[in-house]
Simulated assay, not measured.
Amino acid sequence: MVQAYILIQTEVGRAAAVAREIAALPGVTTAEDVTGPYDVIVRAEAADVDELGHLVASRVQRVEGITRTLTCPVVHIV
């Protein structure tokens, strides 16, 4: 299982709507609108890196109102 945080910048005034729409996508565990340099932070999980890439490129980035995403895979440093 691969997990990642997806940091999203949106058009002005679109953060809440973007977060709601993304929260409904399969593979998304949480989506919150936040303040700061990013407007929405998403926690997602997938079976592998390829599936995660598909989730981001084919589903998340197609949500209207998104201007930029940054995907941060979770690593477990022992």
Results as ranks from 00 to 15, higher is better:
Met1Leu: 08
Val2Gln: 06
Gln3His: 03
Gln3Met: 08
Gln3Glu: 09
Gln3Trp: 02
Ala4Met: 06
Tyr5Met: 07
Tyr5Gln: 01
Tyr5Asp: 04
Ile6Met: 10
Ile8Trp: 04
Ile8Val: 12
Gln9Val: 10
Gln9Lys: 12
Gln9Pro: 08
Gln9Phe: 00
Val12Arg: 13
Val12Ser: 14
Gly13Tyr: 14
Ala15His: 07
Ala16Gln: 09
Val18Pro: 08
Val18Gly: 08
Ala19Arg: 08
Ala19Gln: 06
Arg20Ser: 05
Arg20Lys: 12
Glu21Ser: 00
Glu21Leu: 03
Glu21Thr: 02
Ile22Cys: 05
Ile22Arg: 02
Ile22His: 09
Ala24Pro: 00
Leu25Gln: 00
Leu25Trp: 03
Leu25Arg: 05
Pro26Ala: 10
Pro26Asn: 05
Pro26His: 11
Gly27Tyr: 03
Gly27Ala: 04
Gly27His: 02
Val28Met: 04
Val28Ala: 11
Thr29Val: 10
Thr30Val: 01
Thr30Ser: 01
Ala31His: 01
Ala31Lys: 01
Ala31Glu: 00
Glu32Val: 00
Asp33Arg: 07
Val34Arg: 00
Thr35Gln: 01
Thr35Cys: 03
Thr35Lys: 09
Pro37Glu: 01
Tyr38Met: 03
Asp39Cys: 09
Asp39Ser: 05
Val40Glu: 03
Ile41His: 06
Ile41Met: 10
Arg43Met: 12
Arg43Val: 09
Arg43Leu: 14
Ala44His: 08
Ala44Tyr: 07
Ala46Pro: 02
Ala47Arg: 14
Ala47Gly: 15
Asp48Trp: 11
Asp48Thr: 11
Asp48Gly: 13
Val49Asp: 13
Val49Pro: 12
Asp50Glu: 15
Asp50Val: 15
Glu51Asn: 03
Leu52Arg: 09
Gly53Met: 07
Gly53His: 06
His54Asn: 13
His54Arg: 14
Leu55Asp: 01
Val56Pro: 06
Ala57His: 13
Ala57Gln: 13
Arg62Leu: 11
Arg62Ala: 11
Val63Met: 11
Glu64Asp: 14
Glu64Tyr: 09
Gly65His: 14
Ile66Gln: 01
Thr67Arg: 15
Thr67Glu: 15
Thr69Phe: 12
Thr71Pro: 01
Cys72Trp: 08
Cys72Met: 14
Cys72Gly: 10
Cys72Arg: 11
Pro73Val: 11
Val74His: 10
Val74Asn: 13
Val74Ile: 15
Val75Trp: 08
Val75Ile: 11
His76Phe: 15
Ile77Lys: 15
Ile77Met: 12
Ile77Pro: 06
Ile77Val: 15
Val78Thr: 13
Val78Asn: 12
Val78Arg: 13
Val78Tyr: 09
